[in-house]
Design a binder for these strands. Structure first.
Length: 399
DNA sequence: CGGTGCGGGACAA
DNA sequence: TTGTCCCGCACCG
């Protein structure tokens, strides 16, 4: 009882993070049937948030989460409940050479998790310790999934009281030994997707999640190096396939100067049909940028950007950048019937772009209207913060 | 082998 | 009765 009232209070308090203007609970008999906006998949949902995803969203279909969540029976076949397993840390609290800590992903399978804890820290050889999640009144944080018609309703209860583990993808990549680690920013997005497929980057994005992350954790997550040709095609595809939800994690401009810059950007979407396999597509991609959180308001970031772009002649600063959504599978998971136009809009603090579906190969062209020659085609990686520039020759990492 | 979902059972309020 | 967690099972890749 105590927990219920606590939940309710928290949910009210955190209503700002809920799906826009919608007040509902996963247990409601009737859920909103015509939500104004659907959400982009959030890999790191935390606190008492709710999201409404499209039933075509693959990540939502799979009930994926960055957190290690295991199934929990709630004796309700309509609502899938999952609880957090915490994070696996080194008992020596060791630090990797670049200052990062070890935060491994607990195995979902009980046996595997037990076995995992008997293994040694990959860094110092010390023993591993499981920090269990007690973020929901002493119990693990729980996630709820409910499929209703064209929507997948998601709700989380509790606040994770432990660092973020590796994502599933990172964990798998580490196990296969094909991963090269550098620094990367993990994020939750402030993206909203309306029913007609319009994408908007909201000022009120989910950056709270980032700020709540333990210090240094954002630098723990890996960055995939697609120049690593040993990387298995499937793993590589997965990285690319899931790339949108993590990508455009920049704050929209809060200041009119930046808005002006944005308004100079002309966006258009170009679709290409490509029957080639994904790997071959990847080979035509020029990896140009990663690991950055595009905070347009952040002076440091801009300084960094300038330095970065100056060093990288093939790279253009954000103001000139184009976003491309590569659909290596259907990364957008957009409902083709809902999407018909490609006109971008600048509305208030929102930079919006309409994306065309039919997306077996969607490519977003963005050009600066003041400089038509700077038009370019880019791909955006979903799960990692990548921006890819199409290049018929080859790709090369710039970091 | 491990991730995932289902469902039985136990327990507490 | 209801809600929760633990556990084992089956299925699948």
């Amino acid at each position: 009882m105590l927990r219920i009232s606590f939940d309710t209070a928290m949910e009210r308090e955190c209503s700002g993070t809920e799906s826009k203007g919608i007040n509902w609970d996963i247990n409601d008999m009737k859920l909103p049937q015509d939500p104004e906006n659907m959400d982009w998949f959030q890999e790191w949902p935390d606190s008492y948030v709710k999201h409404i995803y499209s039933s075509t969203d693959r990540n939502a279909q799979r009930h994926l989460s960055g957190w290690a969540m295991r199934n929990t029976n709630n004796h309700n076949s309509r609502i899938l409940k999952k609880s957090c397993l915490g994070v696996l840390v080194c008992s020596n609290d060791c630090t990797v050479s670049d200052g990062r800590k070890i935060y491994l992903r607990p195995a979902i399978c009980d046996k595997a998790r037990q076995k995992q804890q008997s293994k040694r820290c990959p860094n110092c050889g010390g023993s591993l310790k499981l920090i269990s999640c007690r973020g929901h009144g002493g119990f693990p944080v729980t996630n709820f999934w409910r499929h209703e018609g064209p929507f997948i309703y998601f709700q989380t209860k509790g606040v994770h009281d432990h660092p973020k583990p590796e994502t599933k993808l990172e964990s798998e990549s580490r196990k296969t030994g094909h991963k090269k680690r550098t620094a990367v920013v993990s994020s939750s997005l402030g993206l909203k997707r309306s029913r007609n497929g319009q994408v908007s980057i909201e000022e009120n994005s989910d950056l709270d999640n980032i700020s709540c992350m333990p210090l240094g954790q954002e630098s723990l997550l890996p960055l995939y190096d697609f120049n690593d040709m040993d990387m298995e095609p499937s793993a590589r595809d997965n990285v690319l396939n899931n790339c949108f939800s993590q990508t455009k994690c920049y704050n929209s401009a809060k200041d009119s100067d930046h808005l002006q810059n944005l308004s100079d950007i002309e966006l258009s979407v170009n679709l290409q049909k490509d029957n080639q396999n994904d790997s071959s597509k990847i080979n035509g991609v020029d990896f140009i940028s990663s690991t950055m959180e595009f905070d347009i308001d952040n002076e440091d970031q801009q300084t960094w950007n300038r330095a970065f772009f100056a060093k990288s002649p093939n790279v253009q600063p954000l103001e000139n950048l184009s976003w491309e959504k590569s659909t290596l599978h259907n990364f957008l998971d957009l409902n083709s019937q809902q999407i018909s136009n490609t006109q971008p809009t600048i509305r208030g603090n929102l930079l919006s772009l309409n994306l065309v579906d039919d997306v077996h190969q969607g490519i977003l062209h963005v050009s600066n209207s003041n400089n038509a020659s700077s038009a370019a085609v880019y791909r955006i990686c979903q799960e990692e913060s990548y921006l890819f520039r199409c290049n018929p020759s080859h790709f090369s990492p710039i970091l």
